[in-house]
Design a protein around this nucleic acid. Structure first.
Lengths: 143, 143
DNA sequence: CTTTAATCAGACAATTTAATCTGTTTTTGA
DNA sequence: TCAAAAACAGATTAAATTGTCTGATTAAAG
């Protein structure tokens, strides 16, 4: 099997995209998010608690509580979620699994892979949540 | 955590690169490969058995036996190893984990990510083992 | 004030992946 | 022929990831 992001990270990205697609400041209980995205409720709840610690999400306890974005969607980048959940190791470690792969000890694909990786990073760092509102609504309607 | 290839696949790529860097037709016992690459012997042995079934590697049992490449290094692409071990799902499934992501049901990053993914595929499909001989020798000397 | 619905905290279970172990078969070479 | 060294097969263990459960705490609303 091959993975880019962990399930945690995938769900985290989905959940934040979901919240960003709703009215700003809107409070979403984890159950709503879980149902709409068809993912486990307790799991998404845990993940959003993590993102709360990272300052990306805010939470409100008690009845009519739930989660909401802590910042305007235009201030949240895809890479912020990835960094908070999976970390940024993938953008530094060797794709072939060689130890201490670096410019002076490069693995055979160091340069070529590095280019792709940089492009991926740049993409994730350039795109903010506000750009995806319409696309997210569209996709979630079709799950 | 984030992963591109599984450990199996990483070790498989390393082992094939190692064999491709040696004299053509050279027989390598798994112990030698494991020691040089500093990876578990039994594990690499298992992986090379898999690659034998896929026709990328050949094996010779008994004393002075071991593994060797089944084809000339110029006929083995990086993507062949990936396909044999991890499969090519990563190049088809949604990076955000959305179900049935496709051109008519695209996820928010479908297009942008698709471009990067295609570039990665093309790279892995273009590069053959013979291109890496020198770089591999260099890297393994520094592990 | 009590019920209800939510986060939160932490333990637990299940699954997958990674790694190890044990033993068998095969082949070479002394 | 026999011992050594290898692949091969399959079971087992270990670790990480994913998912579930239980209960505590908090806050709103009747």
């Amino acid at each position: 099997m091959t993975v880019i992001f962990s399930k945690k990270c995938e769900y985290g990205l989905q959940a934040v995209l979901y919240m960003a697609a709703k009215e700003p400041g809107c409070v979403c209980p984890s159950e709503e998010i879980a149902k709409k995205l068809k993912i486990p409720k307790e799991f998404v709840s845990k993940i959003l608690q993590n993102l709360t610690e990272s300052g990306i999400v805010d939470s409100k306890k008690g009845k009519s509580g739930g989660f909401m974005l802590a910042k305007h969607p235009s201030q949240i980048r895809l890479i912020d979620i990835v960094a908070a959940i999976d970390g940024l190791d993938i953008f530094n470690s060797c794709v072939l699994g060689f130890p201490s792969c670096s410019p002076d000890k490069p693995c055979p694909v160091h340069h070529k892979w590095g280019e792709l990786r940089s492009k991926a990073y740049e993409m994730l760092a350039a795109e903010t949540m506000d750009k995806f509102k319409e696309k997210t609504i569209n996709k979630i309607g079709k799950i």
